[in-house]
Each structure stands twice: as C-alpha cells, then as structure tokens.
Amino acid sequence: MTAKTARVPVAKTYKIYIGGKFPRSESGRFYPLEDDDGAVIANICRGSRKDFRNAVVAARSAQPGWGASSAYLRGQILYRVAEMLEGRREQFVAELVLQGITKRKAQAEVDATTDRLIYYAGWSDKYQQIFSAVNPVSSSHFNFSVLEPTGVVSILAPEESGLLGLVSNIAPVIVGGNTCVVLASQNLPLCAVSLAEVLHASDVPGGVVNILTGFREELAGQFSSHMDVNAIVYCDGDASVAKQIQEKAADNIKRVLSRVEIDWKSHASQNPYLIQETQEVKTTWHPIGS
C-alpha cells in the first residue's frame, strides 16, 4: 500500500437554474454528455416543458423589479458578473477544453466573454440616449419617445458557441431590463451551468436569468408558443425551423429575433442594436402652453 491513498474524485452535478435556485429537472431526466471518444463527461439535466413553465413564472415575477432598477445598477451588476467570471477563468477554460477545443482557443473564448459583459455593462446607461427621441409635432405638445423593456424573453442559445454565444445573447437582453429563460447549447452545456453559478454570485436577482439544459427539439415549441413570453431569440436552424418558431410566436405576437449564422467571436457581433431589439418604444404627448 502506498502511504497516500488516492482521493475519491468529487464530480460536479450540473443542474438547471430557475428563480435563483439550482433544482434538478422536475422530470428527473438527464442525458449523458460524451467526449469525442464516447466517454461520459457529465450527466446533464434534460429539462422538461414544466421546468420551462416554472422558469417563465420566475422570470415574469422578477421582471418588474429588474426593469425598474436603475440603469446604473444594472450596469454595475453586469460588470460584477464579468469580475466573477474572470475569477473563475480557469474553471471555464477547463470546461471548454473538456468539450473538445484547444486550451488556447478556450482562453480566448473566456476572455472574449468577459469583455463582452463589460461592453454591455457600459451600454446600460447609454442606449436610452441613442435610441430615444424628442419628436417634432405640429401642436402644442412636447412629444418624446423612450425605450421600455419588452418583458420576458426566451432565448434558444447558439448551439456551437456554448459560452461566448450564450453570454452574447443574455447580456443585451438583461441590460435593457428584461428577464430571460435560456436553453443552453445541447452539446456544449457545461459552461452554461457554471455561468449560472457566476450569475448567482453577482447580485443578479433570482429569476432575471433562468438557464435550462435539455433537448432543443423537445423544448423549442414551448419556447416559441408560451403566451407569457414577449420575445424569442433563436440562433440556429434553417428556414423551416424559423417558420415553425414564427408561426408559434404569432399567437401572442412575440418579437421574433433571428440571430442565425452570426460569428460571435467577431467584434461586429456586439452592438447596441441587440439591446434595442428587445425594447418597446413608448411615446408620450405632454401638453405645453402655446
């Protein structure tokens, strides 16, 4: 016998994130995530439509508070997320490597993700100024248009960009005061679960971001049809997938936002128009003396 006994490895349980808590799927189901050689890396929760329903309830109840918080605070919190992500850099790199990319590429992706959060944190108190307007009208009214969050946004995150693509879609939605329910990449879900832990430790109120893992085919329909979701963002699929999403979304006239075939590594993929896309314009007529 050796003097030192080998430690029993402590494997992490990858769970979903709903309303600031980390439950397992209510369905009790999971799917094994395998590496290129077919070895199991981890068991991932296979979220159900009931998990999605619960997540929308959490997102809906969190939205008024988050939407009413000051732009400054939302920026601070996003910046805090970036700080926490930076502190966990090695963990995220390791997870990306486990999912089959080189360490160098993994480091680049984590760094780009942190930078992207800071980019959108910076926009938190600026996009209103860019997109709001004072409108000339031919009556004695002061007429102005301002942005308001659309509400609850469901996000089918990019399948091929498990961390950077995920954050690139969450950040512009929440910085604008929306809350969201996200379906993580089916084949690259590790970082999504770890990101939930980062969000949890960053003053993001519970319910603002809810992250599910599971099968796109099973959940995409509910993501597009739920009557209490105000907008859907999708990042993959051909014309037939887009048609299905649009048809289901039509019931309550959701905003449907296609972000297909975007290179999330590119700087061009980050811009304030992504924030604007999940905002509603409210125009006010204010009487003034002639």
């Binding site: 999605f52 049809s225 009557m227 209490d228 019931d251």
Partner: peptide
C-alpha cells in the same frame, strides 16, 4: 390548447 398562458389575457 397545449400552450402555456399569460395573465395578460
């Protein structure tokens, strides 16, 4: 309907 509902309606 099979579709989850919203209090808005």
């Amino acid at each position: 309907t099979g579709v989850y509902q919203s209090a808005d309606y």
